[in-house]
Simulated assay, not measured.
Amino acid sequence: MLNSFTDASVAGLMPELRAVMREAAAIAKPFFRHGSQTTARIWSKAGGSPVTEADVAVDTFLKIRLSEMVPQAAWLSEETADDPARIGRDLVWIVDPIDGTRAFLSGHPDWSIAVALLYKGEPLIGFVHAPALGVAYEAVRGQGAFRDEQKIVVDPRTTLRSARITGPKPMLDRLTRGAGPDPDFVRIDRIPSLALRLVRVAEGSVDVGMISSDARDWDLAAADLILREAGGLVGTMNGQATVYNRPEPIHGELVALPTALRDPVIAAWGA
Rank of each mutant, 00 (worst) to 15 (best):
Y137V: 03
P123H: 12
P50F: 08
D55L: 01
S9L: 05
G204P: 02
L66Y: 04
M21G: 07
L225W: 15
V115W: 10
E23C: 10
P192Y: 00
S44E: 09
P192L: 02
L257F: 02
V92S: 06
F32H: 02
A25C: 06
I87L: 14
P109D: 08
R200F: 06
D224V: 04
T176E: 06
I125A: 01
L257P: 06
D214Q: 15
V58F: 04
E138A: 12
I42H: 10
A256F: 01
E203D: 14
I42A: 09
S205V: 03
T80W: 14
I113G: 02
P168V: 14
I266C: 08
E78M: 07
P84L: 03
G47K: 03
G100A: 02
L172G: 07
G180H: 14
A130W: 03
E53S: 12
D189P: 01
V135P: 07
D83V: 00
R22D: 14
P249H: 08
G47T: 08
G231I: 00
E229Y: 15
D189A: 15
K63C: 12
V140N: 13
L117D: 11
V255I: 14
M21S: 08
A132E: 12
L172K: 06
V95R: 00
T159G: 10
G235T: 00
T159Y: 14
A132G: 07
P264A: 10
E68M: 12
V206S: 01
P168H: 05
H251P: 11
M1A: 14
W43G: 09
R262S: 07
A267G: 14
I152P: 00
A25G: 05
T39V: 09
A139W: 12
F61D: 05
S49C: 06
L220I: 15
M21K: 07
T60E: 15
S112H: 11
D155S: 12
L225S: 02
L261D: 01
